[in-house]
Amino acid sequence: MSRRPVGVRTVPALTYPHVGATRTGELPAGWRHVRHRVRLPDSCFRAAGTAVLDWRLHRAAGIRLDAEAERAAPGVRVVSRLGIGPLRLAAPCAVVWAVDDGRRAGFGYGTLPGHPARGEEAFVVSRDDAGHVWFEVVAFSRPDRFVMRAAGPVGRAFQHAYAWWLGRTLRRLCARA
Results as ranks from 00 to 15, higher is better:
Ser2Glu: 09
Arg3Thr: 09
Val6Pro: 02
Val6Tyr: 02
Gly7Phe: 03
Val11His: 03
Val11Lys: 01
Leu14Tyr: 14
Leu14Pro: 12
Thr24Asp: 14
Thr24Ile: 04
Trp31Pro: 02
Trp31Thr: 00
Arg32Phe: 04
Arg35Ser: 01
Arg37Met: 05
Arg39Thr: 09
Cys44Tyr: 13
Phe45Tyr: 14
Phe45Arg: 01
Arg46Ser: 13
Gly49Thr: 06
Ala51Gln: 13
Arg56His: 12
Arg56Met: 07
Arg59Gln: 11
Ala60Met: 07
Ala61Asn: 15
Ile63Met: 14
Leu65Ala: 05
Asp66Arg: 08
Glu68Cys: 02
Glu68Lys: 01
Gly75Trp: 07
Val78His: 03
Leu82Ser: 15
Ile84Cys: 15
Pro86Ala: 12
Leu87Pro: 10
Arg88Ala: 15
Ala90His: 14
Ala91Arg: 08
Cys93Arg: 13
Val95Trp: 01
Ala105Trp: 07
Gly108Val: 03
Tyr109Phe: 15
Tyr109Glu: 13
Gly110Lys: 11
Leu112Glu: 05
Pro113Asp: 12
Gly114Phe: 07
Pro116Glu: 13
Glu120Asp: 10
Glu120Val: 08
Val125Gln: 06
Ser126Asp: 01
Arg127Thr: 09
Ala130Glu: 11
Gly131Gln: 04
Glu136Pro: 04
Val137Gln: 02
Ala139Arg: 10
Arg142Glu: 03
Asp144Ala: 15
Val147Glu: 13
Arg156Ile: 00
Ala157Thr: 00
Tyr162Met: 06
Ala163Phe: 00
Ala163Pro: 00
Arg171Ala: 05
